[in-house]
Every structure is written in structure tokens, then in C-alpha cells.
Write a protein that binds this DNA or RNA. Structure first.
Length: 557
DNA sequence: GCCATGCGCGCC
DNA sequence: AAAGGGCGCGCATGGC
């Protein structure tokens, strides 16, 4: 326990610096790095733990900088390090990802799990009752022992996980996760800029349209209840299997069904994207700090919660509420058709690869090849159809599925035979895709992304989708990692959103150009590292807000 | 009142 | 031969 400033600090640091790895754990006065403070910082070696009481020795943090924040040094082992990094970052201590080992993330990578387990789940004998005790006042012996034990158990876990990572050849993936980790902590701490007044405007308009739609619907039925809707429609003589948009879309000619569809859209807007959002604005930063889940999907994709910023409607009225503060801008960049490129690389589909190399529009190409038209004669509708073919058939959609998918997703009505014919034409056009599908083994197998991320599944469609979606996630994480590692190339610039194939950063208006280059280079290099030979295209623009009000547009290949 | 589940739908 | 995949959240419902 280090609870008084004395001359031993240098000695202690010297001692700690000689170990290959250190368990790291913070006890804080709360969960919010913007409001709460670090009380204890524990570093554990296999010999024992040293706990610094930062209330009594605040200068210890500064003294620990050379040990914790230099690019080289002991591996820092912790559980859910995003939490600790948020507090350390807030305190001005920047840790490099190459030195980290997060037992939570590694467990998720080892088992392809979308949820991070608690440390208690990995070390059942651990007693967590003190975790939520009062860490602001005088500390009991039990509390001190708890802080030390938490850090100590990490050693055993690290050894165990390290072995499994090597056995399953997951070293590369684990490295990607650890390099991305500081960037994600950074993004969460920074938060997204949000203007509640603009949001409220959109909400008010939504309320108006909901009211007018409600007038077209009979009273006495809860239109939010699928059960009641189904019963009502049956009384009208419409016997439907369910009330999904896909089903209802086939009866749009019925005025009540049409009104119901409009009601659903308006109601969704107001329930999920309504008044509640004011609560998410942080009282001190004035921004929204969602919880980014680094391994949020079994494929390796990220997820986002409380609130989810990855499913904001594309409606400009809502997106413009994500608005940079005065004098600042948002730079938004996204990968163009990234999953198709990755699929083409994995399946070695020469025709697709050639099209990408020549800079062709793949949806137009598919339309022209499948429909036997000159590319110049491909209509907007043809291209829409090709989009449905490309995205649906790639991952194992059947003819019946294609019909529904084309109708629900693209508003296109196809007959079953027509769908069948298009499906066959698609696979004749891209024979390597067919071979890729046919080459999938039966039963439970492991599938991997191009970086080696692993998932075990027995489902055909997951065998196809996981390597593609997961490789995209790997490339995006490498891009985020590069932003962190190259953060000194820019000033006052940081990531605020990551949406699967899109990254948004915030920058001073005068530095927009530099921020754009920084972002585009990281995205190109990050993705290029995982896909190899396929060209990567990144579309980028500078805006006041989330892609609504442009200042300048650029293009980089 | 709390909690789990199913349905439905926003995004990629 | 056939099989899109991945999330989070709000509401309704039913059990306690």
C-alpha cells in the first residue's frame, strides 16, 4: 500500500518495471470518468500487489506515467480495460494498445461471444461484494485486500488465456482488439455532439404527423399490438400470418393497411427516437456518451448501447441533431461496398474483382450481366434489383426469400419463377460465388475471417456471412487503432462514431482538411491490411453535422 | 411493480 | 436442394 508520499516511489517503479506483465485495476468513486475520481490504482505482480491511494498521494499518477504510458514496458493485464482507460485518459495518461491484455475481450475472442463476461464469471471463486462499496471514504482492510486480489487473479487468467490464444491461432485478432481498445475508450470518453433543440424539432414534427395518421385509423384498437392488429384485419377478411412490414406491404392497396404502415413508421420514430434522448445528454459535457461494445457481435462487429447510435434513422431531421459545436466540423467517411469487396476476395470471384479494379459500379454491373443489358441501358429499377441480388444471394438467400427481400427492402414485386430465374442468372454470372457456397462443409465447423477471427457454427448462412462481416469489422478496428496511434498528427480531433463501415470524427473547422486525410489514410490502410489485393474505396465529406450540411466533399481511393 | 419473451423495426 | 447475416430498443403480453 502506498498511501504517503515518500522517497520510495522511484524504487517501486523500478521494481514494477522489471516484470513482464502487471495486473491493473482501479477502484473509482463511481462509473463516470467525467464526474467520478480514481481512488485506488493497483498493480499486481506474481509476487504481490501494490496499491496506490490517489487521494492521499495524488502525485503518484504522474509518477506512474513512465511505467504505464510509454510504448514499451510490462503488459498491462486488466478486465474490461475500456473502463480503466477512460479514467486514465481523463487524467491525462495515455496507454498504448500494444501493451494491453484485456481478459474480458480475450475471452470474447476465444469463444466468439457477443457479451463480455464479468471477472467473477471467469474466476468464480472471486468475491465481488466489495466492488460497489464506498471507495471515497476511509478504507477497511477488507477493501484493500479486495483491490489487491482483483489485480492478482488476473495473472492466472492471463497465463491460461495466452495459451488458448496460441492454440487457436488467435494472436493476430487479439492484437487487433488491443490496438483498437484505446481508440474506443477515447471515442466513448469524447462522446458525440448533440443538439437537443434540433432533435426536439424533429420530434415535434413527428408528433404532428402521428396525430394526423391516427385520424385515419379506427379507435378502440391498440395499433401497437400485433395481436389486436391481426384480429382486426381478420375481421376485415384479411387473413395474414403476421403483421410485419413485409406482409403488410403486399396489401398496400387496402387503405387501412396503408394507414397502418404509415402509423408504424411514425410511431417507431417517436418511441425509439423521441423525448427520451434528452436524458442521454451528459450534464457536464453536454454530449452523448453511449456505451461502445467492442466485441458486440459474434462476428466481431462492434455494438452500441444506451443509446444505440448505430441505428439512427437516415432521416436528415434527426441526423442533423448530431452537430459539431461552434467552430468545429464532423468528418464522415465510409467504405464503399466493403462487404462485396471482401466476399469477392474470399470467394476469389474474378469478375467481381476485375470490376472493382476497374472502378466499376458493382450493382450496375450485376444488373447488366444478369439482365443481359448494356450497362448504359441499366435503369434505376434494374440497379435496385441488382442490389437485392448482390446483398441477398451472397449470403444464401433462396428464391422465395429473394421475393420477400426484394419487396420489403427495395419495393420490388417479383414472381417466384422470376426470382428463381434471377437467382440462377446471378450464380451463372458469378460462378466462384456458387463454388464458394457449395464448398461449405456440412455440420459444425469453425469459420474464420481473413485475420483469423474464429467462430464455430453449423448454420450454412453463418458460414458464409461470418468471414465477410467479421473481416469488415477487423478492418474497421484496425482503422480506429491507427487513429489512436497517429493521434499526434492532428489536434483536438477524435472519433465520435463508428457504424460498421463508417467512421465520423470531430475536428476544428480550420483543421478539417488534415482531419480528413488522417481519417481516410487510417481507413484505407486499416482495411487494406486485412483484405490484401482488393482495392478499397473510401468516400469522405466534411459537414457541420452527421452528413446533412456539407462544407466540402472529397474522394479518395 | 418487476422480469422474460415475442414481435416488430431502426441501422449496417 | 435449400438456407441472408449482425445488432439494440420499445411495446405488448403474461407470469410472478
Amino acid at each position: 500500500m502506498v498511501d504517503s508520499p515518500d522517497g520510495r516511489m522511484e524504487e517501486v517503479l523500478d521494481y514494477l518495471g522489471r516484470f513482464p506483465f502487471l495486473g491493473l485495476d482501479l477502484e473509482t468513486t463511481g462509473l463516470d470518468p467525467h464526474r467520478d475520481r480514481i481512488r485506488l490504482l493497483t498493480l499486481a505482480t506474481e509476487e504481490g500487489a501494490i496499491t496506490f491511494d490517489l487521494f492521499r498521494v495524488p502525485q503518484a499518477l504522474e509518477a506512474l506515467k513512465p511505467l504505464l504510458a510509454s510504448p514499451r514496458g510490462p503488459v498491462l493485464v486488466g478486465h474490461n480495460l475500456k473502463f480503466d482507460l477512460g479514467f486514465l485518459l481523463k487524467a491525462g495518461l495515455e496507454v498504448e494498445g500494444g501493451r494491453l491484455w484485456d481478459t474480458g475481450l480475450v475471452h470474447q475472442v476465444l469463444n466468439a461471444e457477443a457479451r463480455m463476461p464479468s471477472l467473477k464469471e471467469l474466476v468464480p471463486e472471486l468475491d465481488k461484494t466489495l466492488q460497489t462499496s464506498d471507495w471515497a471514504g476511509p478504507l477497511s482492510q477488507e477493501q484493500l485486500a479486495y483491490a489487491a486480489l482483483d489485480a492478482l487473479v488476473l495473472h492466472g487468467l492471463y497465463q491460461e488465456q495466452h495459451k488458448k490464444v496460441n492454440q487457436r491461432s488467435l494472436g493476430k485478432v487479439v492484437a487487433i482488439e488491443h490496438r483498437a481498445l484505446p481508440a474506443i475508450a477515447w471515442m466513448e470518453l469524447s462522446g458525440a455532439p448533440f443538439d437537443p433543440a434540433l432533435w426536439e424539432e424533429a420530434v415535434a414534427e413527428g408528433e404532428g404527423s402521428l396525430r394526423s395518421i391516427q385520424e385515419a385509423l379506427p379507435k378502440g384498437v391498440n395499433w401497437n399490438s400485433p395481436q389486436q392488429v391481426l384480429r382486426y384485419l381478420r375481421e376485415l377478411g384479411l387473413n395474414l400470418p403476421n403483421t410485419t412490414e413485409e406482409t403488410l406491404a403486399q396489401h398496400q392497396d387496402h387503405p387501412l393497411v396503408a394507414a397502418l404502415l404509415r402509423y408504424r413508421e411514425a410511431a417507431k420514430r417517436l418511441s425509439t427516437y423521441g423525448e427520451k434522448w434528452a436524458e442521454y445528454v451528459h450534464p457536464t459535457t453536454g454530449r452523448i456518451h453511449p456505451s461502445w461494445q467492442q466485441v458486440g457481435a459474434e462476428t466481431g462487429r462492434m455494438a452500441c448501447r444506451k443509446p444505440n447510435l448505430q441505428n439512427i434513422p437516415r432521416d436528415q431531421a434527426l441526423r442533423r441533431a448530431f452537430r459539431a459545436p461552434q467552430g468545429r466540423v464532423l468528418v464522415k467517411a465510409d467504405f464503399s461496398q466493403i462487404e462485396l469487396r471482401i466476399a469477392a476476395a474470399i470467394a476469389r470471384e474474378e469478375r467481381m474483382l476485375r470490376a472493382f479494379e476497374e472502378g466499376q459500379d458493382l450493382h450496375t454491373l450485376t444488373a447488366s450481366l444478369v439482365l443481359g443489358k448494356d450497362p448504359k441501358e441499366v435503369t434505376k429499377e434494374d440497379r435496385q434489383l441488382a442490389k437485392a441480388l448482390n446483398f441477398g444471394l451472397l449470403y444464401g438467400l433462396g428464391a422465395e426469400g429473394l421475393r420477400k427481400y426484394a419487396l420489403a427492402g427495395y419495393g420490388l414485386r417479383l414472381g417466384l419463377e422470376e426470382a428463381q430465374r434471377l437467382r440462377e442468372a446471378f450464380f451463372r454470372t458469378y460462378p466462384a460465388l456458387r463454388r464458394w457456397h457449395l464448398s461449405q462443409p456440412e455440420g459444425e465447423v469453425e469459420v474464420r475471417t481473413l485475420t483469423g477471427r474464429r467462430r464455430v457454427t453449423d448454420r450454412f448462412t453463418e458460414k458464409l456471412n461470418t468471414p465477410v462481416q467479421g473481416t469488415g469489422a477487423d478492418g474497421l478496428k484496425l482503422a480506429l487503432a491507427l487513429l489512436w496511434e497517429r493521434r499526434h498528427q492532428v489536434r483536438d480531433t477524435f472519433p465520435v462514431l463508428a457504424v460498421h463501415d463508417e467512421v465520423v470524427v470531430e475536428a476544428p473547422e480550420g483543421a478539417a482538411h488534415a482531419a480528413q486525410d488522417w481519417l481516410v489514410q487510417a481507413m484505407r490502410e486499416g482495411m487494406a491490411e486485412v483484405v490484401g489485393e482488393v482495392p478499397i474505396e473510401v468516400e469522405v465529406g466534411v459537414y457541420r453535422d452527421w452528413g446533412v450540411t456539407p462544407l466540402a466533399v472529397g474522394h479518395a481511393q
